Amino acid sequence: MKKFMPLALVALFATTLSSCELVEGIFKAGMWTGVILVVVVVAIIIWIAAKLFGGSKD
């Protein structure tokens, strides 16, 4: 049953939305996923650089 869930969602979207709205929704989700991923990666790089080059202030 779990295998067919994504297929069922695609079928639901295909029947309820026009093709332009469906494509728009996919690209919006992709864009926000990409933005969040980039922010997380940059934050991790900054954190690692601070740990490596920050040194201890003791």
Results as ranks from 00 to 15, higher is better:
Met1Glu: 02
Met1Arg: 03
Lys2Asn: 10
Lys2Gln: 05
Lys3Leu: 11
Phe4Met: 08
Phe4Ser: 02
Met5Val: 09
Met5Ala: 11
Met5Lys: 09
Met5Phe: 07
Pro6Trp: 14
Leu7Asp: 04
Leu7Ile: 06
Leu7Gly: 00
Ala8Gln: 05
Ala8Tyr: 12
Ala8Ile: 07
Leu9Glu: 08
Leu9Trp: 09
Leu9Arg: 12
Leu9Tyr: 03
Val10Trp: 01
Val10Gln: 12
Ala11Met: 14
Leu12Pro: 00
Leu12Ile: 10
Phe13Trp: 00
Ala14Cys: 01
Thr15Gln: 02
Thr15Trp: 02
Thr15Ala: 08
Thr16Leu: 04
Thr16Pro: 00
Leu17Tyr: 01
Leu17Cys: 02
Leu17His: 01
Ser18Met: 00
Ser18Thr: 12
Ser18Leu: 00
Ser19Ile: 14
Ser19Pro: 08
Cys20Val: 13
Cys20Tyr: 00
Cys20Ala: 12
Cys20Asp: 03
Cys20Thr: 14
Glu21Ser: 15
Glu21Thr: 13
Glu21Lys: 15
Leu22Ala: 15
Leu22Pro: 00
Leu22Trp: 00
Leu22Val: 00
Leu22Met: 12
Val23Tyr: 01
Glu24Ile: 13
Glu24Tyr: 15
Glu24Gly: 12
Gly25Gln: 06
Ile26Gly: 07
Ile26Met: 09
Ile26Lys: 02
Ile26His: 04
Ile26Ser: 04
Phe27Lys: 10
Phe27Ile: 05
Phe27Glu: 03
Phe27Gly: 03
Phe27Ala: 06
Lys28Ile: 15
Lys28Phe: 09
Lys28Pro: 06
Lys28Arg: 14
Ala29Phe: 05
Ala29His: 01
Ala29Ile: 08
Gly30Val: 06
Gly30Phe: 08
Gly30Ile: 05
Met31Thr: 13
Met31Gly: 06
Trp32Ile: 08
Trp32Gln: 11
Trp32Lys: 04
Gly34Lys: 08
Gly34Thr: 09
Gly34Phe: 13
Val35Thr: 14
Val35Ser: 14
Ile36Asp: 13
Ile36His: 13
Ile36Tyr: 12
Leu37Asp: 09
Leu37Glu: 12
Val39Asn: 02
Val39Met: 13
Val39Cys: 10
Val39His: 04
Val39Tyr: 07
Val40Trp: 13
Val40Gly: 01
Val41Lys: 07
Val41His: 06
Val41Pro: 02
Val42Leu: 14
Val42Lys: 10
Ala43Pro: 00
Ala43Trp: 07
Ala43Asp: 02
Ala43Thr: 11
Ala43Gln: 03
Ile44Asp: 03
Ile46Asn: 03
Ile46Leu: 06
Trp47Leu: 06
Trp47Met: 05
Trp47Ser: 10
Ile48Trp: 05
Ile48Cys: 08
Ala49Ile: 00
Ala49Asp: 05
Ala49Arg: 08
Ala50Met: 06
Ala50Ser: 10
Ala50Gly: 08
Lys51Val: 06
Lys51Arg: 11
Leu52Thr: 11
Leu52Cys: 01
Leu52Pro: 00
Phe53Cys: 09
Gly54Arg: 15
Gly55Leu: 13
Ser56Asp: 14
Ser56Pro: 08
Lys57Pro: 04
Asp58Trp: 14
Asp58Ala: 00
Asp58Leu: 11
